[in-house]
Nucleic acid binder design. Structure first.
Lengths: 352, 352
DNA sequence: AAAAATCACGAAATCGTTTGCGTTTTTAAA
DNA sequence: TTTAAAAACGCAAACGATTTCGTGATTTTT
């Protein structure tokens, strides 16, 4: 009874094959693993039987025995996110190529939930963790303790100085610099910047790029042109954005262009500007970070800073797998920032 | 040596706690599972020690023992897909609430790769599988054999008659019907339909809804207004779409509106129409299935058929979990089709 | 005070693998 | 022919958890 009830599924096990072929379990195992200890004849028989009966090793048992599960945990703030979806695609592609499964979990931007995800992944025996930290997350001590316990961790997308490991992201500073420079070259002088209210690397780096471009162009940075929006939920974000736009437009020295820092902010800002009746780019120009395929089709076509999301995912996964597969050697951790690309479109057509 | 090397990670095990507290492994296990066999004092001590040392049960071991892994396999054609991302979000939300992990795999629309995914998930000991089949997939026998072997399977998004189980999707027929009716009410008479070249349920149902709406409105269905585009890759899709549009516009009796069947087709069609210099909706109106948040911001704002993707994901996950958790009872399988919603915007403003 | 019941805990089997080592059989060398 | 060396295979422990059953110790009942 019990031994049948508790079977994971009806799949054949080594024991089944052993019984059927009148051999021992270890012989079966070794045959399937092509051990030198087993004769060719026996191997042949075993392999044949195994294929005929669709034997596939139980990953749980194998994982338990070997101390690894050939699975990678991925923690992101949300699945429903353009850029992240592309990164996940990249991660999955590389993982699949190396026969790793990925287990994706959502932090929903909550530090607490993120910790729960990591905890679950860890106890689930993942071989490593890929993480794009929640914007709430300031304390990396938990992750660090796991890392010290031997769990390979790689940061992607959103990076942090608080933990020493491989990190893969976009060159946000340069991207922001280029975007701002693009505006300046197009003749815009009063450039506003809409960012998040977080301390995320992507936020600060983009802000710094913006500032640097201004400085290099001898344009004085006007703090009143920087607005930060609540990133905790969509409702608040929209409200903050609308307030920011109204604020900008009410300024005596109005901005003539906006550089937006994230996907969400960029597209919503465009929507809101349209809704509030402002003409882009005549009333105000707009360029922003976003990876949407629809930039071209927007009203007007939106100039964007495009990041190589798929490639970031790929590289991050490669880095993690390399970490997993040579745990012993001591490695030099590196931070890779992939180039972004400016796609100039109608929303930054230029003055006059 | 070996017993340390092979440790999954440095996390504490029951054995560790047993040794530290000078108790047996079974006592520890029972304490943590709040067994009546253990005294309150002992439980207290064990619990305290466990918490202090961040004990968390090894999921592999637990899964192996119990014959289940508290994980759900999800197979989709792609991660980088708006609608699917929303569905995955829904799936994940419900799964997390019920402490299941989800393992997502991509079929990339390949039947072969899909089979490999399922195989991997099965041997990985998932407790059930959620699948939106690849468009190549015509043969469900493999999935059916696993199902017969006791693996709960639920179809979502793309449904099929070939397998008997719970199925959750959008009411595609009604959605298409409503979209076509919307066009008709707005005064359009020559309504073209752009669909995929697949035999997917979502494709045929939407086609049927389109036809029914025409029939109910006494408009004769003109087969020459139906075009199917290659869905295997983006390149071909774009080429086919452009050809289709040129074809439509070259017709002596040109269509005055297009109803597009999928997210990809809808947004690309809009982009292409703009690119080719046609004015929407003056030259031709457009309505299509898509869930993009950007419909409002497109040029022009795109009328859409919106499907409750998140809810579909949620419901599918609920159905699967119910299947997993009462395997024994015999269930009546049902197919649920959630309502879609027409969002009328500028791209179907109406004639004159 | 003796018998019975209850309580608190430990030993051991089990899930499906892998693997070091021992054992038997065959083959090669002395 | 005797001995040494491969070759081919089986035994058993181990991974970490759960669970059945058995066994002393304590408490309750008679």
């Amino acid at each position: 009874m019990h031994q049948i009830e508790n079977r994971m599924n009806n799949s054949v096990t080594l024991k089944d094959i052993a019984k059927a072929l009148n051999l021992s379990i270890s012989t079966i195992s070794k045959s399937l693993n092509d051990s030198y200890e087993i004769s060719i004849d026996t191997k042949q028989k075993v392999l044949e039987y195994a294929q005929k009966h669709h034997y596939s090793p139980n990953r749980l048992a194998k994982g338990l025995k070997e101390g690894k599960s050939r699975s990678i945990g991925v923690v992101v703030c949300s699945l429903d996110n353009n850029v992240l979806a592309q990164m996940l695609d990249g991660i999955d592609t590389v993982s699949a190529d190396n026969s790793y499964q990925i287990i994706i979990m959502q932090s929903k931007e909550s530090q607490k939930q993120e910790a729960a995800c990591i905890e679950l992944l860890y106890s689930g025996g993942v071989d490593g963790i890929l993480i794009s930290p929640a914007c709430e997350t300031v304390d990396f001590s938990y992750l660090i303790s796991l890392q010290k316990a031997g769990l390979p961790v790689v940061l992607f997308d959103r990076l942090s100085d608080q933990i020493v490991t491989h990190k893969v992201g976009a060159d946000n500073f340069q991207g922001a610099y280029d975007a701002t420079m693009h505006l300046i070259k197009k003749g815009y002088k009063n450039i506003a910047h809409l960012n998040t209210n977080t301390t995320l690397s992507i936020a600060t780096e983009r802000l710094n790029g913006y500032k640097q471009a201004l400085a290099d162009s001898k344009i004085t940075y006007r703090p009143e042109l920087l607005r930060s929006c609540d990133y905790s939920d969509t409702q608040k974000l929209n409200a903050d954005l609308e307030a920011a736009i109204q604020y900008y437009m009410g300024l005596s020295d109005k901005p003539d262009a906006i550089f937006t820092a994230t996907d969400q902010i960029s597209t919503r800002c465009l929507t809101l500007l349209n809704k509030l009746g402002y003409h882009i780019p005549n009333d105000i120009a707009l360029i922003g970070f976003t990876n949407t395929d629809l930039a071209e089709a927007l009203n007007p076509a939106l100039s964007t800073v495009h990041q190589p999301a798929f490639e970031i995912g790929q590289l991050a996964a490669k880095k993690l797998i390399s970490l997993i597969e040579r745990k012993n050697e001591d490695i030099e951790y590196e931070t890779v920032m992939l180039e972004t690309h400016i796609k100039a479109r109608a929303s930054t057509l230029g003055k006059e």
